[in-house]
């Protein structure tokens, strides 16, 4: 299932003195199985863009197709589209409302008109995917859980619709490192198992360097870079100029290179950096001995 975005522009409050261009002429094709990292400053248009992918916002001009279906067509059932393109908003735990964890997670499947048996299966599956114990938690009030658990329940509420595409807007915002690592691990596992295409908005360059297969960088409502992380992060200077930066190890390798240490600069992760530095340092040691 692919998502096609053609010449998408969006203007908030068009025709008023407060009008603001949020997106200008965005063109994208997102294919099945990708893990897209979407980065850019606050206000660069990331959140506006993803809200077009499930019809929460409609283009001012341009088209969005999900699985070949035109979202701007009046006859398109947006409800059906939203089952396919799941969306986890920022701080999703602030949208919990159910009396029990079960009721909350069941909201999506019930809206899809599924039978109670199927709903139960979906809830069980979704809670499992986020690493929560169904039997222990299903009858608990979601408001009594810890912050990290609430977030996982909220994400389960979207996964229970079995979306083919999962959009996450800063899924780790406000969590401590342990909680973040846990959530990201679950998302990566889902992606690896081939269950979802992932589009993740984040501010962490380290996270996307490790997880994403493709990186889209936005600025002032337009796409500036679009490619594999290794290619995008090669633009160290331009990214720094945009105030976005690169993973710390990537920056380190660039600095070392410019100081004359013969290292590769296309390094994204700690493991890669370790291997490359060991290689370079051993070469130097042997050379100088």
């Amino acid at each position: 299932m692919s998502i096609v975005v053609e010449h998408l522009s969006h203007i908030y409050l068009e025709g008023t003195p407060m009008a603001k261009v949020a997106l200008r002429d965005v063109n994208l094709i997102i294919e099945d199985g990708e893990f897209v990292g979407l980065i850019g400053h606050t206000g660069s248009g990331k959140s506006t863009l993803v809200q077009h992918l499930n019809g929460l916002l409609m283009p001012t001009s341009g088209k969005v197709y999900v699985d070949g279906v035109d979202l701007t067509d009046k006859h398109t059932s947006l409800r059906a589209i939203r089952q396919k393109v799941g969306m986890v908003f920022q701080y999703p735990e602030h949208q919990l409302f159910g009396e029990t964890v079960y009721e909350d997670v069941a909201f999506g499947p019930r809206n899809a008109g599924l039978g109670e048996q199927e709903v139960e299966a979906r809830v069980k599956e979704a809670l499992g995917m986020v690493g929560l114990d169904y039997d222990a938690l299903k009858d608990h009030s979601p408001f009594e859980l810890s912050g990290g658990q609430k977030r996982r329940v909220a994400i389960a509420g979207v996964l229970a619709m079995r979306p083919a595409v999962l959009i996450l807007d800063e899924p780790t915002a406000g969590l401590d490192p342990e909680g973040s690592a846990d959530i990201l691990g679950k998302i990566q596992a889902l992606h690896r198992a081939g269950r979802v295409t992932v589009i993740m908005i984040t501010h962490s360059m380290e996270d996307v360097a490790r997880m994403a297969t493709r990186l889209i960088v936005m600025e002032h409502g337009g796409v500036v870079f679009d490619g594999p992380p290794r290619e995008v992060f090669a633009q160290v200077d331009r990214l720094k100029e945009m105030g976005l930066g690169v993973p710390q190890v990537t920056e380190l390798m660039h600095e070392l290179h410019s100081r004359g240490l013969p290292v590769q600069t296309n390094i994204l992760t700690l493991d890669e950096a370790e291997a490359e530095l060991v290689r370079a340092l051993e070469l130097r040691r042997n050379g100088t001995v």
Partner: peptide, 16 residues
């Protein structure tokens, strides 16, 4: 602002 955000989040789960 918050009401709008919650509405959108629930609409994303098929609320009408």
């Amino acid at each position: 602002e918050e009401a709008e955000k919650i509405m959108k989040a629930q609409m994303a789960r098929g609320a009408d």
